[in-house]
Amino acid sequence: MRTPHAPRHSLRSIAAGLMGATLLAGPASSYDLPNLNLGFTSFLDGAPPLGPGWYPTQYLQVYTAGRLTDNAGRRLGLPRQDVSVIAGITQLLYVSPVTLGPGSLGLDILLPYLPDSSTDDGLGGAALKARQGVGDLLIGPFYQFAPIMGDQGPRFLARIEAQVIVPTGRYDPAAAVNPGANAWSFNPYIAGTLFVTPDWTISARFHYLWNGTNDRPAVAFGPSVLSTQAGQALHANFASEVSVSKALKLGVNGYWLQQITDTLANGIAVPGRRERVFGLGPGALLALDKDNFLFFNAYYEFGARNRPEGQRYTLRWVGHFD
């Protein structure tokens, strides 16, 4: 974020959307937006795999980028633009067995953390610095709709969640990569899975993002900027998979992000900073047994504006117990 007189490409945090999920959140944000669920959720996103109960989940994501973009998608003017982040998320999700109308209530809690991060700006760290630590807590009450059934099993699954990002994580206004964002955010979503056939599904999740005020903005904005507020955004995950065996599913997965309002600096809109990115790649889902599932998703980003553009690899384990 910046005032009209601040450096055009000053960075607040660069590990854009490295985390997020139901399921998600992440370690840092790039440029203005906070951590988002970009690709953390994918196949069968409309419902937990086994109905009511507790679902412990562990995420591990590796993100690398060698290109930081401006408002036209051009590279920024740094000698080097290398960012590397290893991020983790521990999640506990609960689906109540008690029905309420056409579905059940539940609660989703996620704690992200950033065990390793590094940057290379070609300037000895003068422009890009990285921090590690615990990230912002995500809490979301949700409503899981009962499945719409067909002759051969479920046809459609859906869930809505009112997710809140709480600014509990480590934050350094002098760093480009931060575990926390130092601002509250509201990031509700609706997710659904359509069974085209019993062995072929299509899933999607649509988020809206509203961000609160950061009262400790990045030092790159200068001493005259006392507060910043990232713009509102829309983002979505989508995936499709087919069963190749009883235990293995293969498919494709992607995500999309578009900031829809300008970032504010000292309450004044700053044009030319709206973020955008697309990601697309392959994925797999392996059922280890009836209560344990392993997801792998790879994403290759393109079309970035005012964000890093790189590669993202996510490994997710989902368990279940009553």
Rank of each mutant, 00 (worst) to 15 (best):
T57V: 14
T57H: 04
T57P: 06
T57G: 13
Q58I: 15
Q58N: 14
Q58W: 15
Q58C: 08
Y59S: 04
Y59H: 06
L60G: 12
L60C: 03
L60T: 12
Q61A: 15
Q61G: 14
V62Q: 13
V62W: 13
V62L: 15
Y63M: 13
Y63I: 08
Y63S: 11
T64I: 02
T64M: 00
A65R: 04
A65L: 02
G66H: 07
G66F: 04
R67W: 00
R67P: 03
R67Q: 13
L68T: 09
L68W: 04
L68H: 07
T69N: 13
T69W: 00
D70A: 09
D70N: 15
D70E: 12
D70Y: 04
D70Q: 09
D70L: 08
D70W: 09
N71Q: 15
N71L: 14
N71W: 11
N71S: 15
N71G: 15
A72G: 14
A72V: 07
A72W: 07
A72L: 14
G73P: 05
G73Q: 07
G73D: 01
G73S: 08
R74F: 08
R75P: 08
R75G: 11
R75S: 14
R75E: 10
R75T: 07
L76Q: 15
G77C: 04
G77F: 09
G77Q: 12
G77W: 03
L78P: 02
L78F: 11
L78E: 00
P79E: 06
P79D: 08
P79V: 00
P79N: 08
P79H: 07
P79A: 02
P79C: 05
R80W: 01
R80G: 11
R80Q: 13
R80D: 11
R80E: 12
Q81Y: 01
Q81D: 01
D82N: 12
D82Q: 14
D82T: 07
D82R: 06
D82F: 03
V83S: 03
V83L: 12
V83I: 10
V83G: 04
S84G: 15
S84H: 08
S84F: 09
S84T: 10
S84V: 09
V85R: 07
V85T: 13
V85K: 02
V85Y: 02
I86E: 03
I86Y: 06
A87W: 06
A87S: 12
G88E: 05
G88I: 01
G88A: 05
G88S: 02
I89E: 08
I89Q: 11
I89K: 02
I89H: 03
T90D: 14
T90K: 11
T90P: 06
Q91W: 00
Q91R: 11
L92Q: 04
L92R: 06
L92F: 12
L92I: 14
L93A: 10
Y94R: 10
Y94D: 00
Y94I: 01
V95P: 03
V95E: 10
V95C: 03
V95Q: 11
V95F: 04
V95T: 09
S96W: 02
P97L: 05
P97M: 02
